[in-house]
């Protein structure tokens, strides 16, 4: 009985050790292995789950996105004014100029506004940039909606090229009353596939990005 994986002990051991059959072991081991494999999958499933939770709760300052039709349907709130501040950060790995064209705007919730960020490629290479937004306070994040944003897609820059990149946004009239100042911050990165300028096709990267913007 020292080696129950031998498999031939079933009849012999029945009288002696009715408890130990290799079939029973295989059953338990199989179930446990399935649990282990399932949990490996669960680890990966946490990736889309995380993005969905962030989107629903506005956690992490991830902003919302609405269609133009929805934005036009919204009613402006005449007697309320909110200050929107724009800031920018350049990720250490990139060589860019990147800044908002307006530092601050006074806006009415429910009305659509347009502004832009200016970016310039400081290298002699064709480079792809990607901006990721974040809103503070995070409680305001899910009320900050954009109909058009340069952050929705990756931006291609010829060597030394520059451009103004538009941003159209609307603040949801349901923005909590205690919020009177919202800061929108963008970080500009070298896109990971910056060197393969030809392909802007959806990659694994593109997939997660779609959900998280």
């Amino acid at each position: 009985m020292t080696d129950s994986s031998a498999g031939h002990e079933q009849q012999a051991s029945a009288a002696q050790h009715p408890r130990a059959t290799s079939k029973a072991h295989a059953m338990v081991a199989g179930k446990m292995l399935a649990l282990a494999v399932g949990m490996f999958g669960f680890g990966y499933a946490m990736v889309p789950m995380y993005d969905i939770i962030c989107e629903i709760t506005g956690l992490n300052g991830k902003t919302g996105r609405v269609s133009i039709a929805e934005a036009e349907a919204a009613q402006a709130v005449a007697d309320r004014e909110v200050i929107v501040e724009f800031t920018s950060t350049i990720n250490a790995s990139g060589s860019w100029t990147f800044r908002p064209t307006t530092r601050e705007m006074r806006v009415k919730p429910g009305q659509t506004y347009q502004t832009a960020y200016y970016a310039e490629n400081l290298t002699d290479r064709t480079t792809v940039g990607q901006a990721t937004p974040s809103v503070t306070p995070s409680a305001a994040a899910k009320y900050f909606n954009k109909t058009e944003c340069f952050c929705f897609t990756q931006q291609l820059f010829e060597p030394r090229a520059s451009k103004d990149m538009p941003l159209i946004f609307i603040i949801d009239p349901d923005l909590p009353l205690n919020v009177d100042r919202v800061t929108l911050s963008y970080t500009f990165f070298n896109s990971p596939d910056a060197n393969s300028t030809a392909s802007l096709s959806p990659t694994l990267t593109g997939f997660t990005q779609e959900i998280s913007q």
Binding site: M46, N60, Q130, P192, D193, T203
Partner: peptide, 20 residues
């Protein structure tokens, strides 16, 4: 291998690593 699970540049999030 150029995935971006935890790289903000590619749409990932480093904080997500901490959760996992």
């Amino acid at each position: 291998f150029e995935t971006s699970f935890f790289s903000a540049a590619g749409g990932g999030d480093p904080v997500m690593y901490q959760h996992i």
